[in-house]
Design a protein around this nucleic acid. Sequence first.
DNA 1: ATAGTTGTAAAGAAATTGTTAACTATAAAT
DNA 2: ATTTATAGTTAACAATTTCTTTACAACTAT
Lengths: 231, 231
Amino acid sequence: MQKLSVMENKAGKILIADDEPDILEIISFNLQSEGYEVFTAKNGEQAIEQAKKHMPDLIILDVMMPRKNGFEVCNILRLQPAFKDTIIIFLTALNDESTEIKGLETGGDDYITKPISPKVLISRINALFRRITKETGSILQIGDLQIDREKYNVVYKNEEIFLARKEFELLALLTSKPQKVFLRNEILHQVWGTDVIVGDRTIDVHIRKIRQKLGADCITTVKGVGYKFQM
Amino acid sequence: MQKLSVMENKAGKILIADDEPDILEIISFNLQSEGYEVFTAKNGEQAIEQAKKHMPDLIILDVMMPRKNGFEVCNILRLQPAFKDTIIIFLTALNDESTEIKGLETGGDDYITKPISPKVLISRINALFRRITKETGSILQIGDLQIDREKYNVVYKNEEIFLARKEFELLALLTSKPQKVFLRNEILHQVWGTDVIVGDRTIDVHIRKIRQKLGADCITTVKGVGYKFQM
DNA sequence: ATAGTTGTAAAGAAATTGTTAACTATAAAT
DNA sequence: ATTTATAGTTAACAATTTCTTTACAACTAT
């Protein structure tokens, strides 16, 4: 048996509701190729049903649909706390200013008029997803070590370790490219800044403190050159 | 001296960059009537400058501008962590599919083609703002602490605690992202505003008052960096 | 062995934050 | 307009933590 999809639903779940089967199929296909997991509905009531069943991250609603139009569906969903943060995009042939405004004010995140290029639609969806997914950007994980720039903390083997600022910056620098040897000069520039002049032993002392606090010897000295991080 | 504005910057700060003075003026006017605090720039470099100065929540960038076009400005800003979450909208006369896709992939949150109705633009901006302001909207519950932005009150262990305005805003900011370390600069910008200059000890004093009133030590000092909230 | 480099411990400098009280600004009330 | 209360800011100093230096030991390669 052949593998159907290389990519598992990494990107997110999307529900599309439209009464035109063609549109449903074209959009589905394109979103699936992008790695999204796609569900479909061909009228308003089905849309609500599917939404509750699959809890999609994003819902594309045709405005003109049988059995509850897109606006109605949006209103109903938005009333429930579970769909408070769900992204909703209206997709419609109605190229009318006041309708667009109504759609956006009803709680829609975007309003796109048909005919729409699948590529543009996908770009817009990616843009919206980017915004809700952008959480884990600042956490760096290397083996048992976890460095969080935002929380400014370091966890090693499930224990939090307190590093002072310079120590943290230094470790963050070294771990930003494991294995790479950072020259003493590079370290000075990155951690201390270009205009600060500190003595020769300062870096060593900080390295020592980090080694001490981490316990393990993750920082290797490359004599005459610099230091590198490796697990 | 007369009071200049009835409404203080409740809604949010917006920077508009466009080389056509007419557009700048029309959009500014409309956004200001909506309660937004508006800054303007007439070329790319000025846009970057103003962005750094005022730290807007949203930036509208004309694509075709002298001295760095909109895409370039976006790229430069997105490189800096401070502008990672800033909403960026491209506004342009280029009604071209591939350009739109490029804009969205560059890190833009929306791409709007001129001519644009001010009403629609505002609807779109409101929609984007709604999303980032959402968690700010209602009641925030963290452990025994309950913060109501609307009523402006704080309940801790079932007892209401009265916080003065600055204290409240500061606590609200810190709790908006528990665990995250807020730099002193960030705090100054968010709570005091970009143009206010206050002494070094002012933040400390307010932190102290909050700690005092809450009893528990929920606010942790990260020396040399800032403060973070954690239960 | 010698020169060059790095590791270590302790001390003291420097920077940052905590605390208090006094002062100023602002808004509400008389 | 003046008073009053409250909020916000500043200044001075204490407390604390972080950073740097110093002096010397240990190590490595020529």
